[in-house]
Design a protein around this nucleic acid. Structure first.
Lengths: 139, 139
DNA sequence: TTTTATATTTGCAATGATTTCAGAAATGAA
DNA sequence: TTCATTTCTGAAATCATTGCAAATATAAAA
């Protein structure tokens, strides 16, 4: 868990004014590694904060993604979810339970791609899908 | 370009009855490596075939994806597109022109991921984003 | 502190890609 | 041909996401 004051500094350093809503949303995605959707963040924070608009959650998360503070995941084709961990790692989505799991990688994603001369790479995502160990044991 | 009769066989082998629409859609995604959306396929084929419904295109592409004949790409978070090439390769999406490019990979995606014990992997996608060589030269 | 300007939030309506659904058409079997 | 099943169609519905204009909060100036 990162301290609130530390998170506040990160927002300011990124040129983002740390409003009550923004700080709460930032704290949520940085402390929950569950890859929440905007809706999940909204449901979790609407009670904590006095009031909160779903639009604010969408706008704020987009702000964070554009600033490079948060990753946008499109591993599930029916909704977007967010990851406060911006270090390089892969994601696995279980076809059975829908859970999204972080996976460590051995080296940089780009190391395994050919013919990247001339390309400027700003982002890389490795998505794996299948059945997770928990669901596999159940069947 | 693959022969029509060959494509027909592939559909039958996958347990899919090769209707006129299905064969046309299958031929389109197998011969165009432009990663089209359902809408693009619809626009391209509605004139060729006498009539065609966008619903049919969506249903048919989903059918192909479920059968493993076609890949579904979610590299762009605002729409889904399709790739008739099911061999293992990476995709690059240019932030400037939106073009999606195929990239060769040096080895299997899974080789670089740690801690996959217990997971059953059915699908893997490596998405890269940034600026393509053509757009880079223009700026 | 008050005033003023600017940035942020809010709630609702609109958007647009995708899906559902029920009827129409095509296909295959008998 | 007749019947049963599959496939296709077009319009309506869905739902995550965004646009917008009004309301609120914040910061700077007076």
């Amino acid at each position: 868990m990162i301290a609130r004051s530390e998170l506040k500094k990160e927002l300011i350093n990124a040129g983002i004014r740390p409003s009550v809503q923004r700080l709460a949303i930032y704290e949520y995605v940085k402390s929950h590694h569950t890859h929440p959707t905007a809706d999940v963040v909204y449901d979790a924070l609407r009670d904590v904060l006095g009031s909160l608009s779903l639009t604010t959650v969408y706008n704020t998360l987009k702000l964070f993604v554009d600033a490079g503070l948060v990753q946008l995941l499109t591993i599930d084709d029916t909704f977007r979810c967010f990851d406060g961990d911006t270090t390089s790692h892969a994601h696995f989505r279980c076809d059975s339970c829908g859970r999204i799991v972080d996976l460590k990688i051995k080296s940089d994603f780009l190391a395994m791609v050919d013919g990247l001369g001339g390309f400027e790479i700003k982002e890389a995502q490795l998505y794996l899908k299948g059945i997770c160990p928990i669901c596999k044991r159940k069947n």
